[in-house]
Write a protein that binds this DNA or RNA. Structure first.
Lengths: 384, 384
DNA sequence: CGTTACTATGAATCGCGGC
DNA sequence: GGCCGCGATTCATAGTAAC
């Protein structure tokens, strides 16, 4: 990238004041960060000038008080002003404004990506449909290491949602099917992607604290850019932050434009992108890793009625017996709990592999089989 | 289930015509399918009468013929660009109408589940937020065996999205945290669920063809009902279809009410639910969270001599030690008080869960166990 | 130097009942 | 409605310290 271009909003507004709008810049600020509100910044760009827009807008989290971990430490929450909106209506107006500008500057064959959580993604999705965008996929980013739900009040929030949309229903968008299939071990790339959150070396810090509260993993952008842009394409990110989009675009030979209001983020992003980022092996591996190995919980066999609640399980010698309950726990004379815990209790040991210890009577073969046998069948039937 | 009750819309409309609305039915039609449009059907139910609503609404935004306006008039078949907005607006009105009725009939502590895909879920999510529902989680159903994208033009659509919402922000909803954790091999249940699509024996057929185009797997409803309802709760499904909700509800000892317009689906569902077998009591028992379990005071363990006064309790590292006193308080170098207070004092923290902090030496297994283990045994021994 | 143990942390809408 | 006390609650990584 070159020097950061700051298109001063004051200048733009002054120049455009006569006609009520800012002048259009026809020489695209490639590899540059426009220091401005993204709506103002995009207004200065001509129609149909970018191939893709990736946007990570504020989520409007509406968090309450403090949250403590069980060990008493405090969770460092997103409490920045830029994430605060008075009402849904205010948020909707903001969303409509930037989505409309983004659509205007998209080339006819361009596409849009937006990431969000349940707090905002339904607003975003509805609005972009209303504006005429045509949704191509919704993609689930499954976090392999999400933050747990510390109070045990809900399901662990373990994913975020992305929407991929074309400019309109008839648009001929870019999708590199072959590249995706290759990336996924010769299987079609699915709409759910398992990628770790951004941490470790990749997480940018200033003075020892995270530079930005919501930095996205490069692996996510890598897959998006590889899938839906071509080399040399222009990618615009209206909420540039620490510049993950720019960094990955540079590495993959795509052109980029960023919009960012806050100087501290611009500084971090500028330095990050200037530093040549060699694709080290481990990073590449993470980015290309296909879905994780399937893990089967005992409860799944109960849910799917492969093993019905109420079934009796035995050890190999039929000395101990337990009853399967609806939630996948088992109950016997030593109490109740997981198959592993109860296997251990039955033997007076501290641990036990319940999958091989407990058996069921197999109707078909008229014989006793370890429940692990059933797990293998489940895997065979559902993960092939 | 008994006989299918058909509350004739004509009767209802006639009877209510004088005052402009249908009469309210105070005797809930439990275990019955109301043959009517779900909006009309729900209007006949009193306020705050059901514990949970599970809805699988239609999302064929383009097929106007299948969609009724809230006022009962038919939607014009549309496929022209100019009418897109009208299509969305019409769908939104329909969505708002049934979601509003669902909210009205929900008890204060009740909750709503809706399933959808990217075609409709953003409309549904926005609308329910606008109506005052409070989203608790969005859940991703990862299909382990989705239909491939034959043309290779997009990512394989391998998931559907569910929204779980409480009636309002302050509502005290039901969440069986312990049961979910047990079901998932002692790890918190995440927001992404891997469940196979409905096929094989489970897929209902008539004359060799599938009875319903979007039959949901029972495993999905099983998890939903186990997680967010209690035994005996009333579950209403406004788009009953082949009655998956009813079949699983019956199996899990929940009451159910269905709404369905088409006789062919009512026939299939009726037969299916009649054949479904309820689980017996012991299999239905699930791991309870201490919150919902009958409260066991530490003193009760001492009273019943499960834990004798004078017993020594340790933290996991045996660094701190306290003595159990006859009144259920404990005494150590930091003074005396409840197990929680002394656990906090021993660690210099403001709070502590004494049940998991303090341990005792278990004679049987010759190992150290948290006193919570003893409480579990107490609960089991005294379970009704 | 290798292995183990401990610590830190991440887009989070994270109690409840009695007075 | 506010305040206060009881008591329930965490998973995967990465980095650092201890052994």
């Amino acid at each position: 990238m070159g020097v950061v271009t700051k298109i001063k909003p004051s200048t733009a507004l002054k120049a455009g004041a006569k006609k009520g709008k800012a002048p259009i810049i026809h020489d695209l600020p490639l590899g540059q960060i426009i220091k401005d509100d993204c709506i103002n910044a995009m207004k200065q760009l001509p129609d149909a000038c970018v191939d893709m827009v990736f946007a990570d807008p504020p989520y409007n989290l509406q968090l309450g008080g403090d949250l403590l971990r069980p060990d008493g430490s405090q969770v460092d929450a997103v409490d920045d002003d830029w994430d605060k909106f008075d009402t849904f209506a205010t948020y909707d107006r903001f969303t409509e404004a930037w989505l409309a500008e983004a659509r205007r500057i998209l080339k006819p064959g361009g596409s849009l990506w937006v990431i969000g959580s349940y707090h905002n993604i339904f607003r975003v999705g509805s609005t972009l449909q209303d504006l005429g965008y045509w949704i191509l996929n919704d993609i689930v980013w499954r976090k392999s290491n999400p933050m747990p739900n510390f109070r045990g009040t809900r399901f662990t929030n373990a994913h975020e949602t992305l929407i991929w949309a074309a400019k309109d229903e008839k648009a001929k968008y870019t999708f590199n099917y072959r590249a995706m299939k290759t990336l996924n071990d010769e299987l079609q790339m699915r709409s759910d992607w398992t990628i770790p959150i951004c941490s470790g070396q990749e997480r940018l810090k200033r003075n020892g604290v995270k530079a930005h509260p919501t930095q996205k993993p490069e692996a996510l952008l890598y897959r998006i850019l590889l899938a839906t842009t071509n080399k040399g394409d222009v990618v615009l990110d209206p909420f540039f932050g620490t510049g993950t989009t720019g960094a990955v675009a540079k590495r993959l030979g795509r052109e980029w434009i960023g919009c960012e209001r806050e100087q501290k983020y611009i500084d971090v992003a500028t330095q990050r992108i200037e530093e040549a980022l060699p694709l080290d092996e481990s990073a590449l591996k993470t980015m290309q890793s296909p879905r994780s190995a399937p893990r089967v919980a005992f409860g799944q066999l109960v849910e799917t009625e492969m093993l019905k609640a109420g079934t009796k399980l035995f050890d190999k010698k039929r000395k101990n017996q337990v009853l399967v309950r609806a939630d996948g726990s088992v109950e016997g004379e030593h109490g109740n709990g997981s198959i592993h815990k109860m296997g251990a209790a039955a033997q007076g040991q501290s641990s036990c592999n319940g999958w091989t210890y407990w058996h069921y009577d197999d109707e078909q073969t008229k014989s006793m089989k370890p429940i692990d046998h059933m797990r293998q069948n489940y895997l065979l039937a559902n993960e092939a």
